[in-house]
Amino acid sequence: MAAFAEPVRPSEPAIEARGLTKRFGRTTAVADLSLTVRRGEVFGFLGPNGAGKSTTIRLLLGLVRASAGSASLFGDDVRDVRRAHRHVAYVPADVALWPSLTGAEILHLLARTGSEVDLAYREVLIDRFALDLDRAAATYSTGNRQKVALVAAFATRAPLLILDEPTSGLDPLMDREFRRCVVEARDRGQTVFLSSHLLDEVEALCDRVAILRSGRLAEVARIAELRRLRRTEVEVSFTGDPPDLARTPGVLDTEDLGGSRLRFTMSGPAGPALRALAAAEVETIEVREPTLEEIFLDYYGERDR
């Protein structure tokens, strides 16, 4: 779950993948994936089950060998697993612990064998996650196993945290603590690579997001940039003549709602639509941006299902 950390080269990105491909027989799990994760950012990695997220993470960690392409962590080729892992703390989607050891013993073991640990901060995390350290891991629920892994990872000073579906099994209060920890890690200058299918979580935390579809990247962008690629819904009410939007660039799907109200969707820059509205006697205007979930479903052609 964690590995030894050492000073990293200041010129190298946290993660760099070039043409990364993994085939299992005739099945291609990851195809020609190229991305760069900058230092100090929280990078979201989105996709449904089977999209190739976990396979990509295993490739980035050198846990499986790529069929083609390359990947590096802070400039170290991931094929040299021992060297690359010195920069990483990792929380897998399914946490396995030593069943006969208590939570306290596991954290002690990980602190001795992994990255530098901030012991005072670890005590704070134990309290915040309400983690019972006196029980054997064999008695832990899925959520409690996840808490042990999260406390161990966030307490390290590893420059890169790779988190694969890290909040599975956590209740809403613990999910809130997780989000708080991600923000604190970013504030310390750590890089967080967050793989998740929880769109609100990614939307709340991430600086940029990649959307993975059937093993291929559909998009890599800031969340605000992704929203600009999608239609924005606008609803207006007016007292005089309705605004003339028929030939306004970027205005789509105008709908008369009756009662001197209309709705339209807008794509691209808002300037032309705003100028058209300014010429009318508009009383109210409501703008609704698409959520990340709607953007994500657009990529899969499922928004209207």
Rank of each mutant, 00 (worst) to 15 (best):
E225I: 11
L229V: 09
E225C: 13
R261S: 09
E233H: 12
M266V: 15
R247N: 08
R261W: 14
D241I: 06
L274F: 15
E255L: 13
T254P: 05
A273S: 06
R231Q: 02
V234S: 00
V236C: 01
T232L: 00
R247A: 14
P249A: 14
M266I: 07
G240S: 05
L257N: 01
T248P: 00
E233C: 07
R261L: 06
G240K: 02
T265A: 14
F238T: 04
A270L: 08
P242T: 05
G240N: 04
D241H: 13
R261N: 07
L274P: 00
D256K: 09
T254W: 11
V236K: 03
M266E: 02
V236S: 01
V251F: 14
G268K: 06
G240T: 05
E235P: 13
T254G: 11
P272L: 15
R230E: 08
E255I: 13
R263V: 07
T254S: 12
A270V: 10
R228L: 03
P242N: 02
A270S: 15
E235W: 13
G258V: 03
G240Q: 03
D244L: 15
P249F: 13
R228V: 05
L262P: 02
R227K: 05
P243K: 04
P269S: 05
T254Q: 10
T265D: 10
F264G: 04
S237F: 05
L226E: 03
T265R: 14
R228I: 04
L229P: 12
M266G: 06
T239S: 08
R230A: 14
D241W: 09
P243N: 03
R231P: 00
P242M: 04
R231L: 01
R261H: 12
P243V: 10
R247H: 12
S260I: 02
L262A: 06
D253Y: 07
R228S: 09
G250P: 05
L229W: 12
L245D: 01
G258L: 01
F238N: 02
A273C: 03
G268L: 03
R247K: 07
P243Y: 11
A246H: 13
L252K: 11
G271T: 14
L229I: 08
E225M: 11
E255V: 15
P243M: 03
V236M: 00
G240F: 12
G268F: 09
R247V: 11
E235F: 10
D244M: 11
L226S: 06
S260A: 12
G240M: 04
D253S: 10
T248M: 00
R263C: 05
P249Y: 14
V236Y: 04
M266S: 07
D241Y: 08
D256T: 10
P269G: 06
R230Q: 09
V234F: 03
A273G: 07
F264A: 01
G271H: 11
